[in-house]
Design a protein around this nucleic acid. Structure first.
Length: 494
RNA sequence: GGCGCUAUCGUCUAGGGGUUAGGACGGAAGAUUCUCAAUCUUCAAACCCGGGUUCGAUUCCCGGUAGCGCUACCA
């Protein structure tokens, strides 16, 4: 059997992302989606989104919304969409097929309630006593009386039977039937279990590659059993190493907070393509030292062979000193890289709604002027609010007048500089080059270094020492506002 | 407990029977520009442990250890 997408005998790949809506979309699920999507796009295959919502008790609308919100933000899309709850007949039909072949049996044992000994300290549980051997007549008779039962798979355990499959990532996998319990196919309320529903749908939807988390690796033996019992050839499997927290445990919202939720990244100002890029580098490598990659470059480079087997740590800080430090530093760096790679116009468009949401009236034209000044100074889109605040406000927030004092200078020097600036600026054209010439000349006249001249002006105008380059800043800010802020600074110095 | 998977700098990873074990993030130092950022240069930083196999193992095999997963009428 060939894995090559170009092999004439292999069917068009069909892959699926099948989240169960029992929680928000977390980063591990997002990565699974992305890898499936990449595989589909790479091979010209079909990407299917399937909601695995057979657990009626735990499903929530909020979760469905969270999944769609997250996927919508990623912006990758999908080709087909299904919901397991619409397909109950299909699942029951497969259960019936397996039962008719004698490969499953009714288990009338009441559902296990206590969760105390679930980790089975006492040993391996394989089946409930008496049920596997129940005669068909007896089984039919009890069922006819309306006695509830679960349908269990009759795992072949005689003569050291083995179940095997080849995982595209983990290689040859073999397990003895003697180590597989008689898992349930149907619950006593008639609802299919995950294993059954998943396999029935994968078979019906002609899924060719199942790319999913490694937590399913050992379940796959059961799935192979189901496929074969129902008369289908199992698809190819590719299991992904898990994403774990810095403490090595599985990512969970309860333990690790909002950093595991996709929407947190969106709200913090990540670019979806940067987030996708980051996730791809967790557990996969293009093997050529490339890190910053566009979605198209990822498609071109993606292959199942590049996936590795060890779990990957999402290196966030658990109690984060600042919101920005909460994220994996590499994710933040990649985001800054993608921001810098963005055309100014695109960046400006993304920034505008954030600024407006923060309550500032600002025109697209003005945002377009500001964007290039901060593009190399922000790591997250939201940083625009702190990096360019002085452009947005009318009145600068209070700052320490001592900031106005230049290196190796004193208040008198600051005053002299600002007075000089205030005197010459009205006659200067507010564009980069004229401002540059005028202010440098002024510095020379005063016998000061350029830096000593520029700093008081920068602080007067921006309210702090660290800001974009001065001339561009003044140009965008405009003459009127600049002069007014210099006047205000002068007052602070008296 | 049983079964399975995994193990290279702090983190993500490349590599692979003989290498100065490579890159990136982060950290440190320096260069540079009007500050900051960006950029550039340099530095520190790793093959889990023990046995084999071999002339030679970080790489292959076995064992240990550790971590993770599954062991539900959850998914």
């Amino acid at each position: 059997m060939s894995n090559s997408p170009n092999a004439p005998s292999s069917p068009k790949p069909r892959v699926r992302f099948a989240p169960s809506p029992t929680g928000f979309l977390h980063v591990g699920s997002a990565r699974t989606f992305i890898f499936n999507w990449l595989y589909a796009r790479r091979t010209g295959g079909t990407m299917i989104l399937r909601l695995d919502d057979t657990d009626v008790e735990r499903n929530t609308d909020a979760s469905v919304n969270s999944i769609f919100d997250g996927l919508k933000w990623l912006g990758l899309g999908w080709d087909q969409e299904y919901k397991q709850s619409d397909r109950g007949a299909l699942h029951r039909h497969m259960a019936q097929t397996i039962f008719d072949k004698g490969l499953a049996y009714r288990d009338f044992t009441p559902a296990h309630t206590g969760d105390s000994e679930k980790s089975g300290v006492q040993g391996t549980w394989l089946f409930n006593p008496g049920m596997r051997e129940l005669s068909r007549q007896e089984s039919d008779r009890r069922a006819a009386t309306g006695e509830p039962f679960a349908l269990r798979f009759r795992v072949p355990r005689d003569a050291g039977q083995l179940v095997r499959f080849t995982d595209a990532v983990y290689g040859e996998q073999i397990k003895s039937g003697a180590d597989i319990e008689d898992f349930a196919l149907l619950r006593s309320d008639g609802m299919p279990t995950y294993h059954l529903a998943s396999c029935a749908d994968d078979a019906d939807l002609c899924i060719t590659q199942i790319i999913r988390g490694q937590d399913h690796l050992s379940n796959t033996f059961k799935h192979v059993l189901i496929f074969e019992a129902a008369g289908y050839a199992p698809p190819q499997f590719a299991h992904l190493p898990l994403l774990v927290a810095p403490d090595g445990t599985k990512l969970s919202k309860r333990r690790h907070g909002p950093v595991v939720s996709v929407t947190t990244y969106r709200d913090a100002g990540f670019l979806p393509e940067a987030f996708i890029n980051f996730l791809c580098l967790l557990g996969w490598s293009p093997k050529n030292d490339r890190e910053h990659m566009s979605v198209q470059e990822l498609i071109d480079a993606f292959s199942l062979e590049g996936i590795n087997r060890a779990n990957a740590v999402v290196n966030f800080k658990d109690p984060a000193p600042t919101p920005e430090e909460a994220f994996d530093p590499k994710a933040v760096w990649l985001n800054a890289e993608h921001i810098r790679a963005l055309p100014v116009r695109d960046l400006s468009q993304k920034l505008l709604p954030l600024v407006r949401d923060a309550g500032f009236e600002i025109s697209p034209e003005r945002m377009l002027q500001i964007a290039p000044l901060i593009r190399e100074r922000i790591k997250l889109l939201r940083d625009v609010l702190t990096a360019a605040d002085f452009f947005f406000v009318d009145q600068l927030p209070p700052y320490d007048p001592a900031e106005l004092i230049p290196q190796k200078g004193d208040a008198a020097m600051a005053k002299k500089v600002l007075a000089k600036a205030h005197a010459i600026l009205p006659n200067v054209e507010f564009r980069h080059d004229p401002l540059d010439q005028a202010l440098r000349a002024a510095a020379q006249e005063l016998g000061l270094k350029a830096g000593q001249m520029f700093q008081p002006i920068r602080v007067a105008v921006c309210g702090r020492k660290n800001a974009p380059p001065l001339f561009e800043t003044l140009e965008v800010l405009g003459k009127e506002k600049t002069l007014r802020r210099i006047e205000q600074a002068l007052k602070k110095l008296t």
